[in-house]
Design a protein around this nucleic acid. Structure first.
Lengths: 329, 329
DNA sequence: AGATGATGTGTAATCGATTACACACCGTTT
DNA sequence: AAACGGTGTGTAATCGATTACACATCATCT
């Protein structure tokens, strides 16, 4: 590999001058400039980022810690982050915890060691150890999707969105409303959304029947199983509506209901959250909440950028959302 | 940030010993080992990757050049790559060309400058300039999805899969078969799949009518528009089957057909390629080809690893596939 | 007893960039 | 004519690790 020294030698100048040329700071004469330009052209020289980073402490890389790479939400968020970051000439380093809380910590360390300029954390749960780790890290960290104490976070409006959805269901006359959630170790998806469900039920004086509540693990199949569990728990009295905390689980739930000959929404209405692409094209199309994931990714990126510049310390934001009424309700 | 020198000083040894401890090479005595261990524990020291990379020329990062981050295919492939790479302690740096061929070159350069240990290219088209750039790069590059001359490539079995699908259609008695493709600047998706379509039609002596061929841009909407174009080109004689080169476009096509009151598959059969998750849950479920994207990602990662070790030079592989017969045909 | 080899540690060069500082030149101002 | 400031370039230290080489110690073998 050609180095800055080679370029300097070939162009007959010192490496300082070459460096000045590369970074366009300081003076570089016309002649020197031309010779350097030419030599770089000929050699295809590219400065070593490692050397640069070692000196400047800037890597131009921001790390993203995802629960899972290949989900629609993740890829939409990453796409949004990337849109903002590429404009700043920053690259994205991906890591994937596979929903393992230990890995969140492990990757936080790793990104520290790689001296990422910033970190975006899509946490799933917030342990004390994670907190400590974040506090100990000399790199700006921001969170998306969960309110992580101590750092700037952009959360989805889980409570409001869920309440709105419940209100929609209730407005259509539903009283026997079932719920398919996820483990409440996930505060946002598991905790808050269920809280909204229960509080809305109670507020309207509807019975929250245990048999109508089931838990999945984000997968379509688990939605299917959860739905089966709810239906078979008491065949004599099934709910007239099901509120699922994700579109994927709602899709699975619908699959089961269709198999069993239930008409959607006439017999049972189904609602989800997340506006997966799929939701629009399944039959009936799914009523859901759009969380604007790309934009949330962009906003989080901006938040990180601001934090990196020292602004914006510990700001908390809630992202916008939009109820999408389709045919499943 | 604490450095190796700090650790050495605190532990009362030289930095050489600390380095030996860290990399577990060379001898380190019991006492020294314990002291170093403790100091590292206390300080939370992490070695600087930049410094390490500068010396060793290894970054532990592999770059992926994607046409688009937020597509299902991309995220599945990346997930597969990541599964393999994480076992080797390698991280993934993502770049996204937005289908712009110039960016493929730009990112190749960038990854060179970042001294990625290897590069996986999901090319969309193969220009001469790209070729030259690849040749000039002192980093192993492998390709997925396109046969890129001069480097190891894993391609999908586009010709065979398309032929099989055509055979399925023809076996069901279809003779008037339409085609929704993409621009043939993309050799694999645009070129080969169309070639298979045309050759199968000709082989069976069926007329390839121009009005029954339309081009989309991978999006669902473009599939919708392409279908519309085909149907409206000659209302008196519409095809009885449509072969779409991607599931997304097939989804759009089905959407249009359903709107227009066509029954699928009775009036018009629809087939796709790619086995998007969605395809199973739309109505009717879509007949398609599973390309095993995760596994293809894994295989490509293994190919890169082998290439990085000097084996495997310029090997060409074709990935397996599986026809999935569902209700749309 | 001297040679040998395993064990344990340190010295110092090196990787490829950035940058503070010094210096030289030259036209303009006072 | 001396002082000054803008231009243009070079010297050398520095970032934080790795590693070739040298050296010291000690147990074992011949």
């Amino acid at each position: 590999m050609t180095t800055i020294n080679d370029i300097a030698k070939l162009a007959g100048v010192s490496r300082t001058t070459v460096s000045r040329f590369l970074n366009s700071n300081g003076y570089v004469g016309q002649e020197a400039r031309e010779r350097i330009e030419q030599v770089i052209q000929e050699t295809g020289y590219m400065p070593s980022q490692s050397a640069k980073s070692l000196r400047t402490k800037k890597t131009g890389v921001i790390g993203i810690i995802l629960p899972k790479i290949s989900t629609e939400t993740s890829s939409r968020v990453v796409s949004g982050i990337n849109d903002v970051m590429k404009k700043k000439g920053m690259q994205i380093l991906l890591t994937d915890t596979e929903l393992d809380p230990d890995k969140e910590i492990e990757y936080l360390r790793l990104l520290k060691s790689r001296q990422a300029d910033g970190i975006i954390l899509l946490a799933t749960n917030i342990s004390e150890r994670l907190q400590k780790e974040i506090d100990a890290i000399p790199i700006p960290v921001v969170a998306l999707g969960q309110d992580v104490p101590g750092i700037p976070s952009l959360t989805y409006a889980d409570y409001d969105a869920s309440s709105d959805m419940m209100q929609l269901l209730i407005g259509k006359g539903h009283e026997r409303i079932g719920f398919i959630g996820v483990s409440n170790t996930d505060p946002a998806v598991g905790g808050i959304r269920q809280k909204a469900y229960k509080e809305m039920m109670q507020k309207h004086g509807f019975e929250v029947r245990e048999g109508w509540i089931a838990e999945g693990d984000f997968s379509i199949e688990s939605g299917y199983e959860a739905m089966k569990q709810i239906i078979t728990s008491d065949r004599t009295e099934v709910p007239t509506a099901i509120f699922c905390v994700t579109d994927r689980m709602a899709t699975g739930a619908m699959e089961y209901l269709k198999e069993q000959g239930f008409r959607i929404p006439e017999d049972i209405a189904v609602a989800g959250i997340g506006d997966a692409v799929m939701s629009r094209y399944i039959t009936p199309s799914l009523t859901t909440v759009d969380y604007f994931n790309e934009e949330a990714g962009e906003a989080t990126a901006e938040m990180l950028l601001a934090t990196m510049e020292g602004k914006n310390y510990n700001k908390k934001n809630m992202h916008k959302y939009r109820l999408i009424k389709r045919d499943s309700v």
